[in-house]
Design a protein around this nucleic acid. Structure first.
Length: 291
DNA sequence: CTCCGGTCTT
DNA sequence: AAGACCGGAG
């Protein structure tokens, strides 16, 4: 399976900026943080301008959290921009400005968890470590045993043991890229394309997966819109106004002139959580984006 | 409208 | 263990 998948990858690999050989570890780290939450095509589109402003950990460490937050606009999950800036500071202070190559060192950085630490160690430093994201988990589960439905996924202990047995020693980076590409393009979550799969003759789950779906949980809403949408609008408004705004202005901006006291309370609660997370600073009845 | 995802918090 | 966090694409 290993040689067949690597051979498939050698001819069909998706080409991305962050997959170039000898890529700067900082570029890999920034890319992987973005890829946690954003589709690859969008990351590719936004990465150049981002790296233009923050070409090194030092550059981002010297920038304010507010500057990074503004550059992050449109990427989603804004708190990760804050964590990334903190990571840049930690790298300059604790690792002499160099992205560390050990998984445990990487995992000690803010916003860098099990996936991203393994991905950076593998893709930036060529380490043979187990990298598990949702695509890799799905592909490993399907090729390691006969699954019955499209939602079958093994636990991380099982997956890690399987990964250790199959990751090639000479090309762990290419291997993980290959598995991710297979999961993204053919071995997809809901409608796998087994007839197109290079592993179909060896995969115990090929052609036998039954469609299944997971129960979806619904998110808290206010006036028919998810809470996170209102939250995002506040951050976007403060980003563009770039100076402090009164709570009254924010509320009017969101709900128009006929706001109720419940709307005002709702805005206050959003501002409180944004302030707690360090996204904004409140001064009396005004709020602004962090400096 | 539904779907997607890694990390941190509770 | 479960939920919050985001914006874009389908």
């Amino acid at each position: 399976m290993v040689s067949i998948l690597l051979s498939w990858y050698s001819t069909t690999a998706r080409v991305f900026f962050w997959r170039r050989p000898n890529i700067d570890p900082w570029v890999v780290l920034v890319s992987e943080v973005m890829l946690q939450q954003t589709q690859a095509s969008r990351v590719e589109q936004r990465l150049p301008e981002f790296l233009d402003v923050f070409p090194t950990p030092q550059a981002m460490a010297e920038a304010s959290a507010g500057t990074v937050l503004k550059m992050w606009s449109g990427m989603g999950y804004n708190r990760r921009a804050l964590r990334l800036q903190e990571t840049a500071v930690a790298i300059t202070e604790r690792f002499a400005g160099r992205v560390p190559g050990e998984v445990d060192q990487l995992k000690s950085l803010p916003g860098i968890g099990p996936y991203t630490s393994a991905a950076v160690a593998c893709f930036a430093f060529g380490r043979r470590v187990v990298v598990l994201d949702v695509n890799v988990r799905r592909v490993y589960t399907r090729i390691s045993r006969r699954c019955t439905t499209t939602v079958d996924v093994d636990d991380d202990t099982t997956l890690t043991a399987y990964a250790e047995s199959i990751i090639p020693h000479d090309s762990p980076s290419q291997w993980h890229h290959a598995v991710m590409d297979l999961g993204a393009t053919i071995c997809t979550a809901r409608s796998p394309q087994c007839p197109l799969c290079p592993l179909q003759d060896f995969c115990p789950s090929a052609h036998v997966l039954q469609q299944a779906s997971r129960p979806k949980k619904q998110e808290p809403s206010w006036r028919g819109q998810p809470r996170r949408i209102w939250r995002g609008r506040i951050v976007e408004f403060l980003r563009s106004s770039s100076q402090e705004a009164s709570v009254h202005n924010i509320t009017t901006r969101l709900f128009g002139s006929d706001t109720t006291s419940e709307d005002a309370d709702f805005v206050q609660s959003l501002l409180t959580s944004l302030a707690t997370e360090g996204m904004i600073v409140r001064k009396g009845q005004t709020a602004q984006l962090v400096d």
